[in-house]
Design a protein around this nucleic acid. Structure first.
Lengths: 152, 152
DNA sequence: CAAGCACTTTACGTTAACGTAAACCTCGTC
DNA sequence: GACGAGGTTTACGTTAACGTAAAGTGCTTG
């Protein structure tokens, strides 16, 4: 909890066109504040497919974006399986047959509905939080008053 | 996946003032489309505290609301521990001391920040979904065209 | 009264998403 | 050439949030 997450890395180690840049697993891990283990796990689950240089993993811009999307999905409560489902279909899209494409559109519709529900949930929960907050502040103010009137 | 979730029960078994109504575990389970096991588990985790009638659990309106809030929290990716944290502090509020109240307000601030981030995540993910959807439909249309021009 | 619900407790099983540890390469550098 | 900082694989451990099964209680209904 020391450094803030740099979702968009502006480290900019050297002014490279970003499309050419490559990343080590450690770099990516620091960027998104996850452990290397997590990144390897995502690969194992078919969410990432970095190239290799000998034994070492080499991550390109594409991989970085995928990781970003994956983590965003996670924050929204999607399972890795769900995320993979969309990501893989997206990759298979160019040469996808009609059936697959229709299925993809279907899935997207589901996700959309899901997001809408979440937005509503957020709206409601915000109201409740505001409410609780208000009450808490009221009680707190009350306590302050009593304090003063007890020892004037 | 047969019945739709009746978040707000309008079963209205008998026109009772709702504040007096009580629910069995099975009723609640059906209402929110969870299993009784889940509800018992939430109790065990300190999120619910129904009264008893002999051995059987009796749920009041208050319990129903709590369950509703808990499930909403879950849909937003909060852990049961986090949810309990707020719920318990809320309950302890009336006679809470200043330190506790300030802590509660702090927590609420955290949750708020969390929700804001989620809203941003949702916004971004929606755009991406729209984008993928658009591409998919394009490719699909392409396929249709080829089909026609191959056999006119 | 037997059968069938709806409920109870106890307890072990399961799955997802990693954490953690051990044992091994492979650099640059002191 | 020892070593420290990064990387690697393999494999077992852990936690949250339930699922599932067994065995019992209590009512009411044919």
């Amino acid at each position: 909890m020391s450094r803030s997450p740099s979702q968009e890395p502006d480290e900019n180690v050297d002014a490279l066109p970003r499309q050419q840049r490559t990343y080590s697993i450690g770099e990516l891990a620091r960027m998104f504040e996850v452990t290397p283990r997590t990144i390897r796990f995502y690969e194992q689950e078919g969410l990432l497919a970095p190239s290799r240089q000998g034994q070492k993993r080499i991550y390109r811009e594409k991989d970085r974006v995928r990781l970003k999307l994956t983590l965003r999905g996670k924050r929204l409560g999607f399972s890795l399986a769900e995320i993979r489902e969309v990501v893989m279909m997206y990759d298979a899209m160019p040469d996808g047959n009609a059936r697959q494409l229709k299925r993809l559109i279907e899935i997207l519709e589901e996700k959309r509905a899901n997001l809408e529900r979440q937005q509503e949930d957020i709206r409601l929960m915000r109201m409740e939080i505001d409410d609780v907050d208000q009450r808490a502040r009221d009680v707190l103010r009350q306590l302050g008053q009593e304090e003063k009137s007890r020892k004037p």
